[in-house]
């Protein structure tokens, strides 16, 4: 546990000592706010729909940018070798890096907290969906971060890592979206909807925390973190 914390601390410091964290946070919060205010006053309803409608797509675009360097960067700088010789096991390294990137995402979401406070002062805000929305955003972001880390661990090329992660996250996002799932009829559409990250997110963001959705996100995150560990080990053999 201590070692995970040490790795996470080192990663977080690295984020905030470089412009990456600031650019990410600025892009995330800025885009979220823009998309929220785009429709908020014209709709005239006291909820955070504009924000949580935007979150899944924002995550798809920004999370790969955050994760592409996780392992690829270590490779480039030659620090991977050092990391690998450390007493920390690959699983601990993966967990530490995951927690650090997750925390950064959390900070990004914290920056939007002004919105619910604003809305609550202008009308009757139901805090349930807000809570659900933030929880869903963290779960969704976690799953994407795990996917991104896995891709980053499989390649040395950052650009490739970014594009691959983007494609896979987009696939998970799109597979359950109505524009895609609606093309199929019968049970296929239902299965696709169950696979999609966005459709699950929407269910949580309306304020209902369903055990099935939690299990889904945890499975997705857990699997890709395990796969990252596997990929790292495979690298060691290379």
């Amino acid at each position: 546990m201590n070692r995970i914390r040490a790795v996470a601390g080192r990663e977080l410091r690295a984020y905030f000592n470089s412009p990456i964290a600031y650019i990410f946070l600025l892009a995330f919060a800025g885009a979220a706010l823009l998309m929220f205010f785009n429709s908020f006053f014209s709709r005239g309803v006291a909820d955070l729909r504009g924000l949580f409608d935007a979150v899944p797509l924002l995550m798809v675009l920004l999370v790969p940018a955050l994760t592409m360097r996780l392992w690829a960067e270590e490779d480039k700088q030659g620090t991977l070798e050092i990391l690998m010789t450390l007493p920390a096991r690959p699983a601990e390294l993966v967990a530490g890096k995951f927690l650090a990137s997750w925390a950064l995402l959390g900070v990004g979401l914290l920056l939007t907290l002004g919105l619910p406070i604003t809305v609550a002062s202008l009308g009757h805000l139901d805090w349930g969906p807000v809570l659900g929305g933030y929880l869903g955003a963290m779960l969704l972001g976690g799953a994407y971060l795990a996917i991104g880390q896995f891709i980053s661990a499989t390649t040395e090329n950052q650009i490739l890592a970014f594009i691959m992660a983007l494609v896979i996250c987009l696939a998970f996002y799109g597979v359950g979206a109505e524009a895609f799932a609606g093309l199929f009829s019968d049970t296929t559409a239902a299965i696709l909807r169950g696979l999609g990250t966005a459709s699950r997110f929407r269910s949580i963001a309306r304020g209902v925390v369903d055990l099935r959705d939690l299990i889904y996100y945890l499975s997705l995150t857990g699997f890709f973190l395990a796969a990252s560990v596997g990929a790292l080990r495979a690298r060691r053999w290379a």
């Binding site: 805090w127 349930g128 304020g207 209902v208 299990i215």
Partner: peptide, 23 residues
Amino acid sequence: LVAFNMLMARRTGLRLDLTQEGL
């Protein structure tokens, strides 16, 4: 994991409604 998720998909009702009015 897929099998477990599919198995759980049948279990409705294990959920927490956070909305103020219990929508």
